[in-house]
Nucleic acid binder design. Sequence first.
DNA 1: ACGTTATTCAACCCCGGGGTTAAGTATGTC
DNA 2: GACATACTTAACCCCGGGGTTGAATAACGT
Lengths: 119, 119
Amino acid sequence: MSHSMARDLDLVFAALADPTRRRILAMLLEDDMAVTDVAAPFEMSLAAVSKHLAILAGAGLISQDKRGRLKWCQLEPDALREAAIWMQGFGQIEPINLDAFERFLEAEFGTGEDARQGG
Amino acid sequence: MSHSMARDLDLVFAALADPTRRRILAMLLEDDMAVTDVAAPFEMSLAAVSKHLAILAGAGLISQDKRGRLKWCQLEPDALREAAIWMQGFGQIEPINLDAFERFLEAEFGTGEDARQGG
DNA sequence: ACGTTATTCAACCCCGGGGTTAAGTATGTC
DNA sequence: GACATACTTAACCCCGGGGTTGAATAACGT
């Protein structure tokens, strides 16, 4: 919570507004991944996915750690937490509901096996 | 939860990605308002605010009820709920935390008296 | 009917998003 | 050094977002 919170929220929500990026987040929920592996399931260029990752990183939703020539991408839930708190004030959201979340993943990405290969 | 959930999320998050629209939501949290009253505190044209409201309505975040020549805008927390559930899966968000929310409103909009004129 | 108030629509401007391909930069391997 | 792998940057295209102003529509008041 350093500088401008409004600006942070802009970036976080804008980042979440793209289905490709949400799917990437779902993939990273499973495990850290290198850029090329993140890009694999998508039918778009590596450059496009790289841009998406940059946007996610810019919003603080992921961190990227370059080890050797691989750049590992890791989920950073804190940024989401900020945004979620903002939303909770409006929605009166119930306490954490992982079941609902699983259903959402499935609805968004099919069976969910795509995003959660490990099962 | 009618047609495409992913599309809904696109619209909801895109709508939330703009500070003007978030501020409008905060205003509507206080009370239903007609378009002109919503527009009053903003330094932009009425047409611009009207567009913002259309985007919020398109995302299902507000409803608009035309009574006479006034169009009343009302917060619709359900759309937010969908999105918040999506986020909860990542952030392990704690149960509802109104205090945190108040602080966010203040951080975003000053003392908060702007958005919550009533106190 | 007329003017006024409330709101949207249309046309326009500028800018940035999401995609492309091609070239550039690191890093690892032989 | 040379080649391959991993990733980013640059240049470009197209489209839509956020803002403007000005005209159009809708409902109220007299």
